[in-house]
Structure formats: structure tokens, C-alpha cells
Design a protein around this nucleic acid. Structure first.
Lengths: 217, 217
DNA sequence: TAGATTGTTAATCGATTAACAATC
DNA sequence: TAGATTGTTAATCGATTAACAATC
């Protein structure tokens, strides 16, 4: 009984389904058809049904989907039915900003620790969480059942830090450093990149090519 | 003479090429073949050549690509050959963190203004940039040739804010609010989303499904 | 039962990879 | 000239959309 591998494209869309279903739930909508949802989300109904059926039949012919149930099931698929303990490595501007973000906690991502190499930051607290030095890391990971490590530090330090984290049992890295960690870590370590500057470059590309197109007309 | 539309998949890869070429340049590498680059980047040489040829022939048969030239050309394609003035709407943790990020400026994205609705923040400065109130926005955009607006505010305020920005001539929005702005703005407004919580959910999905796979073995 | 809508198969579309002629 | 490597066409692969039988 081998579970089919789900394509990246589908996984990428799941959080958006989850969000729309959450909003429908808030609005008190009980059921929804793929057709209605398709209109709201501006994707094809076919895609919605195909995507969902990767994970099983959540709907009912002639009825559609129960919003509460589908929301809950997608939540489970995404692993949002339990708490994930998270640490942040690099307590600079971005690291502190993420630590202050309360909305992650509502989805079950709990920041339990903050680390930095800069001794000046030692003991400074962010939302009640003290900034610790890296030498406390191994013990802290074990004692606090840390699952996810967020890397918000310069690319020059990111690789060695990631290797240290993996050595200490971390299996999932949320990487904000501008480097391809996956190329130097074991393949079973999960890396999710947030490369802000690349996002900004795509915006800039679209802006530039749009302006050029306008000029030519 | 109609310019071919470049697929999103290609555009998504461009910043990564740019980054690798920048690193090669720093390392003093003068030329590189698609084969060598393919090995470093772990993509096929075929894809590299196809991607680049969307924009023209940058290489030379028998030689490969000149690193400096290719880096520069991709930079131009991405619009990195000029400065883009940027404002940040929402001077909370994330907004201030982005304002403090000096590395964007090095790629030509210059934060020239910070705005918030909270009067308590009025006049507070971040990296020398004073936080302004929203009523100053229209004038500021005109006087400072602002191209890009970064939205780092709660989703509840994001839509009305985006509409106000567009009314005042903004054509590009870097959106950190968890809402699909593109569905309510004119189609010619460029929106680039950074949905951090969705990124975290994908990480969580991969972690969860990986652990389940391991359990079954 | 009739109508609606899913789950799923088949058709289409697009993106990636392979192959090779062109050419430096 | 011979070797290397691009640019580009053709083949393959995967993802999206359309269609419809199954069924609530």
C-alpha cells in the first residue's frame, strides 16, 4: 500500500484552499460546490476536484463539500492539527519580527526559542522569549522537542548553522538566508525557502516588462 | 514585432541564475558553460539554455557564456540596472524589519518612505526614515517617484490600502498581507505575494508527510 | 425519481528534457 | 581543421482542463 506522491503544484495550492475555507467558515457557509469555490478563487472547478481527490473523496455527489469538514481535513493534511515547536536562529530585525508575529502561533507554529551569535543580544527578550547563545542550542532542542528551525541570518553563516541544526536532530528548516541549503544537507531534511530578494526581483521583472510593453504600443 | 510572453516558471528561475552568476563573478570565474552551471545549480543544462534563449543568445558556440556579460544582461532583464523607489505601508515589526534590511538597497530597491495608521508611530524613525501618516501618502508618492509599495499590514486593512495606492499611481505591490489583492485590483497592477504563513504550512505538510512515510516503513 | 455535483478518465496544453545541426 | 558548446527543433513528461459516468 504505497501512498502516491503528491505534486508540488498541488501542495502549493493547499494553503490557499485552507484559507478560503476558513473564511467561508467564518461567514457561516455550511457547504460549497467546486463550482462556487472555483468562482471565488478564480481557478477551475476541475482543478479543485482533482486537487482534493489526491487526498481522498471529501465531497458528496449532488451536494458538494461540507465546509467545516473539508477545512478540517485540509488542516490535517497540512499538519495544522498539532503544535510545532519552532526556534529562530538569528535574532536580527527579521528574526525578531517573526518572533513577534502572533498569527503563526494561531496555526500551531510556536516559537519557543531565539538564538544568536552576538553576545550583546544575550538575555534580551522578545515577546517574553530570551535570546540565547548558540552553545545552548543542542540541549535546548532536545529538551523542548523542537521540530522546525527558522534561519534568519546572513548567508555566510547559514550553511554551517544548518549543518549544526541537522546534527542536533532538526529535520525541517524555514530558510530566509539567500543560499540553497538543500544542496548541502542530507536529502531527508526538509527545507522551505523564503527568498525575499528573489520575490522582489520578480516584481521588478514584471514591472519592467510591463512598462516596456506599454512603451511599444 | 510582438515580444513573446515569458512563462512564469522561467521568470521564477531568473533570480537564481542571477545569484549564481554573481557568485561566480565574485570568485573570478570568467566564463561558464551550461553544462558546468547545470552541475552547480542541479538543473539540466537544457533548461538553462532554453531559459536564457527566451531573452536572446547570450552565449557563444564552443565557448559558453561570459559570466560578467550574462550576469549583467539578466540584471537588466530583472530591472536591476536602475533604482526603484519603494514605500512600506505598515510600520509594524515586519515593516520595520524590511526597512532595516540594507541588502535590498544593494539590488536597487530603495525604501524612501514608511507609513502607518497608528498615530503613536508618527515621527518615529527607522534607519533615518520617519514614519508618516497615511494622509501624507498621495503627495509623497508624486514627489518621490515611488514605484513599489510594500504592504505589511493586517489583511483587514490591506485591500482598501491597496486601492488607495493604486488610485495614487502605484503600479506594483509587494504584498505580505494574507489576502489575494490581484482579485480586487485592476489587472494591470502587478502584485507579488509573500505569504509567509502559507510557506510555513508547506513546510509543515512536507514534515508531516515525511514522518508518516517513515512510520509506515 | 430528477437534479446536482462529485470522482475519475480522457484530451489538451505547457513545460522539461533530449538530440543534433549550426557555428564559434 | 577539430573540439566544444550553443541555439533550436523534436520527443517526452507532467499538469491542467474537459467530459461524463457514478451516485447522492
Amino acid at each position: 500500500m504505497c501512498k502516491k506522491v503528491i505534486s508540488k503544484a498541488v501542495i502549493k495550492r493547499l494553503p490557499r484552499y485552507y484559507r478560503y475555507l476558513g473564511e467561508l467558515l467564518e461567514d457561516g457557509v455550511e457547504r460549497i460546490s467546486s463550482g462556487e469555490l472555483s468562482e471565488r478563487m478564480k481557478v477551475t472547478a476541475s482543478q479543485i476536484r482533482q486537487d482534493l481527490n489526491n487526498f481522498g473523496g471529501f465531497g458528496q455527489q449532488g451536494y458538494g463539500y461540507n465546509v467545516r469538514y473539508l477545512h478540517q481535513e485540509i488542516g490535517k493534511i497540512l499538519g495544522l492539527d498539532r503544535v510545532h515547536n519552532m526556534i529562530i536562529i538569528g535574532a536580527g530585525n527579521l528574526g525578531q519580527a517573526l518572533a513577534n508575529y502572533t498569527s503563526f502561533e494561531r496555526s500551531g507554529f510556536k516559537t519557543v526559542g531565539l538564538f544568536d551569535v552576538n553576545p550583546v543580544l544575550k538575555g534580551v527578550t522578545v515577546r517574553g522569549i530570551p535570546i540565547r547563545m548558540i552553545d545552548e542550542l543542542p540541549e535546548f532542542i532536545k529538551e523542548n522537542q523542537v521540530e522546525i528551525a527558522t534561519l534568519t541570518l546572513p548567508k555566510s553563516r547559514a550553511t554551517e548553522m544548518a549543518e549544526l541544526l541537522v546534527q542536533n536532530g532538526i529535520r525541517a528548516i524555514w530558510n530566509f538566508a539567500l543560499t540553497d541549503l538543500n544542496l548541502c544537507l542530507p536529502k531527508d531534511v526538509i527545507v522551505e525557502n523564503v527568498h525575499l530578494s528573489e520575490s522582489l526581483m520578480r516584481l521588478s521583472y514584471n514591472l519592467t516588462s510591463y512598462e516596456e510593453a506599454k512603451k511599444k504600443k
